[in-house]
Amino acid sequence: MNAIEISGLQKSYSVGFFRKTEKVALKDLSLEVHEGEIFGYLGPNGAGKTTTLKLLMGLMFPTRGWAKILGKDIDDPLVRASVGFLPEQPYFYDYLTAAELLEYYAQLSGVPAKERGARARKMLERVGLAGSENTQLRKFSKGMLQRAGIAQAIVHDPKILFLDEPMSGLDPIGRREVRDLIQELHDEGKTIFFSTHILSDAETLCDRVAVLNKGELRGIGVVADLLADSGNKVEVVWQGSAATAAVCALNAECHTTGEIARAIVAKTMLDAAIDAIRRAKGNLISVTPVQTTLEEYFLKRIEQGATAGGNAKADSAVLEVKT
C-alpha cells in the first residue's frame, strides 16, 4: 500500500479586486509515496510545496483531484490520528510550557491519558529540549521552537510525518541533529514526506524526490537514478606526466598537480584514455564515475520549465545551496 497517493490535485485561487483573475498554485499533481521511505519535495520558494502540504492536511480544499493517506481519503479526520505535521516556521501558544504544549497535542491526537506525560518528556528529550520542559514557549528561541515543532509532530507516534522545511531556522549543528533525527525516525519505519528548498538536505536524506516549480511537477524519481541518468563521464587519476598530452587530446578536462594528473572524460573515451596512460607507462590510480549533484539536476529541470515561462535566472537564484 502506498503511504500517500495524490491524483490530479489542483488548487487555484481567484485573485484581484473582483476575483476575476485565476492564479494556479498547484497544477494537476499526481504522485505516490511508498510506505517507509523518505520523500523529498523540492522546489524554490513559492513553488507550491506548502500549498500541497496544506491540501494534504485539510487546511485548504482542492479545486480538483483527490489524495489518500494510508489508503483513506484525506477528508476522513481519523486519518490524521496517524499523521504528524510540522508547519513551516511554527509558532506556538506563548503562555504554555513545552511540556503542556506536547500534552495538549497528545490529548488532541487521542493519546491515552496515562501515557501523555511520559511521552511528552521523552519527545522533548529526543529533540534536544530536555531541561526546558517547564519554560513558557514565549521564551523559546526560533531554533527551540523548531525543535518543539518536531516534537509535537511525533508526540503521538504517527506513521507518516509531513515536515515543511524542517531544517529552516536552525544552526549547522541543529540541522545535523534534525537530519539524524529524521534518519532515526525512518529507521523506526515511519514514512517521511518533507519539503525543502535546500538541496543538500534532500541529497543526503531522501530515497526519492519530486521537483516542483511554479505549481508544476518537473521531475520525480530515485535520487541515484536521477543523478546516474545525467552522469556519462568518468574521472581518471594517474601518476606520470608523460601521458597527459595524449589523454587531454581525447577531448577531456585535465588538471595536473605535480606528478598527479586528473582528467574527466566521456565514458566512451575511457578505454582510449587508459590505453594512452599504459602506453606512456603511467601509473593508474583510480577511475570513478562522475555524479551530477542534485543541484545540477534541479537547476536543469527548473530552467527547462522556465524557458517556457521565462525568467529562468530569477527562479534559480532563489535556490539555496548549503552543506
Binding site: K54, M57, G58, L59, P77, L78, V79, R80, A81, V83, G84, F85, L86, P87, E88, Q89, P90, Y91, F92, Y93, Y105, L108, S109, G110, G149, Q152, A153, H156, F162
Partner: peptide, 14 residues
C-alpha cells in the same frame, strides 16, 4: 496568523 491552528487541525480535530 501564528499557524498554531495548523498543528491542531492536522490532528483528528474537526
Amino acid at each position: 496568523e501564528r499557524k498554531t491552528l495548523y498543528t491542531v487541525l492536522s490532528r483528528p480535530v474537526r
